[in-house]
């Protein structure tokens, strides 16, 4: 409850400031008018259209980048020589920020859904790759022995032993990647792509609507927060403490 005091006091103070000195202008808006703009945007469907674009790109990119990351992560997690062979290449590619690929995606795909999808996929690829590799490494050696004892083939070994054992940490990777994906989607929209929540904020700024700008920011916060909270809830529900084991390593 104490946590609520500070934001409430700050908002009330801002509102009083706005009413006494009239700070409302082309640049600033009072908390009440921000809330009004956020409410209107929710009613007239602006939020829904923008959010569905941003979220569908995030999920699509997560699916593509996540699958690729999972496959490569399984490969380098299970086959040590490949891991060692790829070290330099991966270490060189990893520091390239996703946003630096915006112009390349722009050049190839033009503005639109696909270019955003590619960049989000690239962003989701790394956390999943790294978590998959770590999850495979973290499997108890005894399970490896069991799989050898049972003379399981490579496919059965992955399907029956590795994936179930690594699943909790894979889900942690998925959750992290989803957060990264949403952030990147909004960033791409703010930087270039004229769709979605990020663009809605930029558009409000460019049309001198600070109330709508802060209102849309509020929506980004709420949507992003619920998205994370939902994944965290799912993680706790599905895996409980199992997901916490070595999750920070």
């Amino acid at each position: 409850m104490k946590g609520l005091v500070f934001p409430l006091v700050a908002l009330v103070a801002l509102q009083i400031l706005a009413m006494v000195w009239g700070i409302e202008s082309d640049n600033l808006a009072s908390p009440v008018s921000v809330l009004q703009a956020a409410w209107t945007a929710a009613l007239d469907g602006t939020v829904l259209t923008a959010a569905s674009h941003t979220l569908s790109t995030t999920l699509g990119g997560l699916a593509i980048g996540g699958t690729l990351g999972l496959l490569l992560g399984l490969l380098i997690g299970l086959v040590q020589p490949i891991d060692r062979l790829l070290t330099v290449s991966l270490e060189f590619l990893r520091p390239v920020p996703s946003v630096a690929l915006i112009p390349i995606a722009l050049l190839i795909f033009g503005l639109g859904y696909r270019m955003e999808l590619v960049i989000v996929a690239k962003g989701c690829f790394w956390p999943i790759l790294i978590m998959t590799r770590a999850a495979i490494r973290g499997i108890h050696p005894r399970l490896m022995e069991v799989s050898r004892m049972l003379k399981l083939g490579p496919v059965a070994r992955i399907w029956k032993i590795f994936l179930p054992a690594a699943l909790p940490r894979l889900f942690v990777g998925l959750r992290l990647a989803a957060g990264v994906g949403l952030t990147i989607a909004v960033t791409v929209e703010i930087a270039t792509n004229p769709y979605g929540l990020g663009y809605a904020v930029m558009f409000a700024q460019q049309s001198f609507r600070p109330d709508l700008m802060f209102g849309m920011l509020l929506w980004i916060g709420i949507i992003g927060w619920s998205f994370n909270a939902f994944l965290l809830f799912a993680q706790n529900r599905l895996f409980g403490r199992a997901a916490l084991v070595g999750a920070r390593s």
Binding site: T187, A191, G198, Q205, G224
Partner: peptide, 15 residues
């Protein structure tokens, strides 16, 4: 505030 996309600050900064 932390999980907010950092780039979302950009429009405010421009304003």
């Amino acid at each position: 505030i932390r999980p907010l996309p950092a780039s979302a600050i950009a429009p405010i900064a421009i304003t």
